Amino acid sequence: MKIDLPRADGSLVPYTLGEPGAHPPPAVPATSRVAYAAAHVVVDPLADPERLDWETTLAFRRHLWSYGLGVAEAMDTAQRGMGLDWPTTRELIERSGAEARACGGRIVCGAGTDQLPPGPAPLDRIVAAYEEQLGVIEAAGGTPVIMASRQLAASATGPDDYAAVYGRLLGQVARPAVLHWLGPMFDPALEGYWGSADLDDAARSVLAIIADHAGAVDGIKVSLLDAGREIALRRALPAGVRLYTGDDFNYPELIRGDDQGHSDALLGVFDPIAPAAAAALGALDAGDLAAYERIFAPTVPLARHIFAVPTYYYKTGVVFVAWLAGHQAHFSMVGGLESARSVPHLVRLFELADQAGLLPDPELAVARMRAWLTVQGVAS
């Protein structure tokens, strides 16, 4: 399949697609690593007021489970804090929890404080907001991910406030929870989380919280895009507490690990690269490191492009790939976020998704790309 793709100078360059990757769903899930894909949501483009297309949203979760991956529900990839409100999030958690039970899929769900208005709030109100969301997740059968809170970041006066809030939450969870350290490149409102803008001080603060409540902590998801810092934190964790990498730049080396340990995975990039991720993890299970590296290698340029600055617009690229790959019928997003990336950015994304073997039906992908370029005023 061929298509003419535009360049920034207005010229059109012929592009020939490669062969799709041969990554069928595995017979059994990988076992050497725990891996979750943070899943996007699909909006109903004809609804007014806006609502989700529930069947397509849930079908995508079934796709992830079919590849042996767990689903990280209601996380940043699902546009928490960027269009998805709490009532819709609550329904998403409930519906996904029911789907997980029906098919035996693993699921973790984000608990936040986004039912509160923006800005500072009393710590008791922040705790109560978290508690409400934790109750919904536990009732749905999910493992909670205690997400970083914008309201807590705006209200805390130092590490002691974080210790107090997280101590109250971890003292009452029904099952061990996952903590969540999201760097400001993903959300500028979280600058200085854990009580300090100095990342070494912040690490000491969160490690102290984990040490005080290790029995209630399954692990911590770290999204700082800094492999060295993640490895240092991983090595400092108490025995039995996992480090879930959220590093969408350096995931192959962090998941592979070293002679002192490895990271598990809770990644937004596993949404668009699920078939390749499952195949790579299967190769790791089999001890075939060469295959592991070979499968993951072409996904890294794609990931780095999707998560390019401004990183928080990565959701646009995730949904664009899902549309090109045939998982949904349109490229529309909650809150109109499909407009957040430029034409040149998405053209390059098309090329990289193809080169990673992630467009299973090249004819469909080309037809959709041509239609989209026409809407953008580009003849292809």
Rank of each mutant, 00 (worst) to 15 (best):
L337I: 05
G192Q: 10
G141R: 11
L267P: 01
H40M: 12
G70I: 05
D114R: 15
A153N: 15
I220C: 03
E131Q: 15
D361K: 01
G21H: 06
M82Q: 14
S223G: 09
W194C: 13
L169F: 07
R62K: 13
L17Q: 10
A121F: 01
Q151I: 06
D271F: 08
R33Q: 07
A297N: 11
C103Q: 13
G105Q: 01
A154R: 02
E55F: 02
A283T: 00
P118Q: 11
R175I: 08
P118W: 08
V108D: 02
R168V: 11
L84C: 05
A8P: 06
F296W: 09
V343E: 04
Q355L: 01
V321W: 00
Y312G: 01
G171W: 09
S66C: 11
A74R: 00
F307A: 09
L359V: 08
D212M: 10
Q115Y: 05
D264M: 06
A140T: 09
A353Y: 03
V319R: 08
D259S: 15
G167K: 07
S332I: 04
W86R: 12
S155C: 10
L225T: 10
M369T: 12
L123Q: 05
H63F: 15
M369F: 07
D161Q: 09
I107H: 11
E253P: 07
A30C: 09
E138Q: 14
Q79G: 03
L46P: 00
Y244V: 06
L207G: 02
V343C: 09
Y251L: 10
